[in-house]
């Protein structure tokens, strides 16, 4: 395989460890992780609670820095970046989808998206993105007037509207019911397909792994397995 045919790595993780001090105890959340994330991929990071998947997401997403090892985003080294540099990284290159949506309750769906596009350089039209996630008729509703699934789709639209290079989704279906969760996954898959956004989903729900290009399974802070799915299942096809 020649380098030119494989998509370039967007993110490179080399020997990353993370240690917390909890009182007297040292907790090794991550131990020597090596990982590459490539443009246009849909990666599912799978693991039980305590496996270190959240810590890995925090480090990849520029919310935290590793104790040891190196994290690169293209030619930026994130592992020793300052708070200011990490903020810029998140602002310009990263989209986040949270388990609990975290929309501003005081803003409508449209305004929640606009809040992000106002500070982005190459933003998409907020209306179009909301239409793309199927909320064209809910633009002027406040979060409290939307269902959980709708709120999560607003959150996805908010994340996608600024055309991020990487979209991190932390248990995106975690607080949704089954059909709504599937609908949200469908939206994520479409974004990956149509916009070519690198999507990283972390979840403990193994069923979701079927829709990934690659599945990274974490266990006790280390990578237990990296599996490549030859064929990606559609969101409709998976069930849990």
């Amino acid at each position: 395989m020649s380098a030119s045919r494989i998509p370039l790595p967007v993110m490179q993780v080399r020997g990353v460890s993370k240690t917390y001090r909890l009182g007297e105890v040292e907790v090794h959340a991550l131990r020597g992780i090596d990982l590459e994330l490539r443009a246009g991929e849909l990666v599912v990071i799978l693991g039980a609670s305590g496996s270190g998947k959240s810590t890995l997401l925090n480090i990849l997403g520029g919310l935290d820095i590793p104790t040891r090892g190196e994290v690169r985003y293209r030619d930026h080294v994130l592992s020793d970046a300052s708070d200011r540099e990490l903020t810029r990284y998140r602002r310009e290159h990263v989209g986040f989808v949270f388990q609990f949506f975290n929309l501003l309750p005081s803003l409508t769906a449209l305004e929640n998206v606009e809040l992000v596009t106002e500070i982005a350089e190459h933003a998409l039209s907020p209306r179009e993105v909301l239409e793309r996630v199927g909320l064209g008729d809910r633009l002027h509703h406040f979060p409290s007037q939307l269902s959980g699934g709708e709120q999560q789709r607003v959150a996805i639209a908010r994340a996608l509207a600024k055309q991020p290079d990487v979209l991190f989704c932390d248990e995106p279906t975690g607080s949704l019911d089954y059909p709504t969760g599937k609908r949200v996954l469908e939206v994520l898959a479409r974004a990956n397909r149509e916009l070519g956004t690198l999507v990283v989903v972390i979840t403990h729900n193994a069923a979701i792994a079927a829709m990934a290009n690659r599945v990274v399974r974490l266990s006790s802070g280390g990578i237990a397995e990296i599996r490549v799915n030859p064929v990606q299942a559609s969101a409709e096809a998976i069930s849990w």
């Binding site: 998140r90 602002r91 949270f98 809040l115």
Partner: peptide
């Protein structure tokens, strides 16, 4: 606090 922290996650600066 959560609302504001999530904006920081989304790349809003401290000033914003």
């Amino acid at each position: 606090g959560n609302e504001l922290a999530s904006l920081r996650v989304l790349g809003f600066t401290r000033g914003e």
